[in-house]
Design a protein around this nucleic acid. Structure first.
Lengths: 236, 236
DNA sequence: GGCCACGAATGACATGGATCAAATGAGAAT
DNA sequence: ATTCTCATTTGATCCATGTCATTCGTGGCC
């Protein structure tokens, strides 16, 4: 499926300083760099499947990925958006269980694979790396818990506005400083918000009518961010 | 507020083998045991407040605690139930931020406090402890993500059934093998499920009418667990 | 015992949002 | 270009669930 290619070295990875591995001790980084395998996945390709056993962690060299649960009735719930410098698949590895989510490329991406044993061994001997790992886990957990509260208490309108801001935080804006840096289908947006596709569409149209955003195919331009923030009704 | 009393030693803590510290190296456990302070909190007392800065982690010696976010409109969302042997407050500590949740005793509880510096230092030098910490974080994260999916996709009825099972998993049953091992108000149940109190009450009555449970004040007896599982409609 | 206060239960009602259906548009394949 | 397929949009409808209001029950306290 995925196309392997000559490994970029971790030491010179452009996202090295944003990634967890910037905390790793240099000798461990060398070891990781030698052992990893980098592959290219095309848009839509699945990197790993919910239910499968993990054999390592993935570190995004370049690209954008969604992680999603497939709900009982088949509807998917997107639980995380992954960007360059991020790692994924660590949760299953650490708790030694199967993947609980499926990773799908949102656009063509180059992704490095680090074998399980190596990763775990280095984690065990590199205190600063494992501390960083804990920091990441804590922060993901905090975000997840906040999402639980909002899902339980906020109306779809507010959650959609919040989601737009979240996408902006994650993937940033294009050079025009307005367009969200990723193209998602309406269904994907809905699955991120946790609502029906039609509801997401309707509310996006409303946002547009209210002058908060502009829509052009899958492009979304944020015109009035302060108003979006107000709509999201954030307190924290 | 809380009443300190003579410290039980960690080495002889009855929940030692279920707690994270069973993984700590013995010498580190000694250190923790010496430094910790154990206090008694009465039912309803707050152990720490959302928004406050953390100065250490709490390890439950005995008792039951709820961790909750207070939503923007004041409604609370319970995000975790804590039992003897569990620790709490580590998330804020690890990510070096303020508490995002409030911890309140569900019944009289004795809780040990481990100072921040000590905990972090030991975490840094005790690989097996920090590995265990990562395991806990991963598992919490997995649970949180599952909850997000269910909150987004399942009707209240299913979530309530699931919550009853979750309470049973967490706190077990009383000696009669039917009654849930904790007394929660209807409001607390609703805040766990993520619904309005009235909805929780109505559905509990339905469950009772259907013979799944029996209600007697705050006592909830699970009469037909297989049927509750069916109602929860769990696939995983 | 009887009052008070608060949790629990029930009913009536309003509505946000899901679902179903149909029409339109846009991108991919030939 | 033409067709086909799938995403998007819009409209109509329905229902689960939240909200408001009231009553009921229970435990605490004087």
């Amino acid at each position: 499926m995925a196309t392997p290619f000559h490994n970029p070295s971790c030491q010179h990875c452009k996202d090295r300083f944003m990634s967890i591995f910037c905390k790793a001790e240099p000798c461990n980084l060398d070891e990781i760099s030698d052992a990893k395998v980098c592959s290219v996945y095309r848009k839509g390709q699945v990197i790993f499947h919910e239910g499968a056993y993990p054999f390592g962690v993935y570190c995004i060299n370049d690209g954008k990925i969604k992680l999603s649960h497939s709900g009982d009735d088949g509807r998917e719930q997107i639980i995380r958006l992954v960007k360059a410098g991020d790692i994924m698949g660590y949760k299953a590895l650490l708790s030694n269980e199967r993947y609980t989510a499926t990773a799908t490329a949102l656009e063509d991406s180059s992704i490095c694979f680090i074998p399980k044993d190596l990763f775990l061994n280095i984690l065990k001997k590199d205190a600063s790396l494992s501390f960083e790992m804990m920091r990441i886990l804590s922060s993901e957990l905090r975000k997840a818990e906040l999402k639980i509260t909002h899902l339980a208490q906020k109306p779809v309108r507010e959650r959609l506005a919040e989601t737009l801001l979240f996408i902006k935080e994650t993937y940033g804006l294009e050079p025009d400083e307005q367009t969200l840096g990723v193209r998602l289908s309406r269904e994907e947006i809905a699955n991120l918000v946790g609502t029906a596709t039609e509801s997401a569409i309707r509310l996006l149209s409303e946002f547009k009518k209210d002058g908060m955003i502009e829509l052009e195919g899958k492009k979304i331009r944020l015109l009035d961010i302060p108003e979006i923030i107000r709509t999201a009704n954030l307190q924290d």
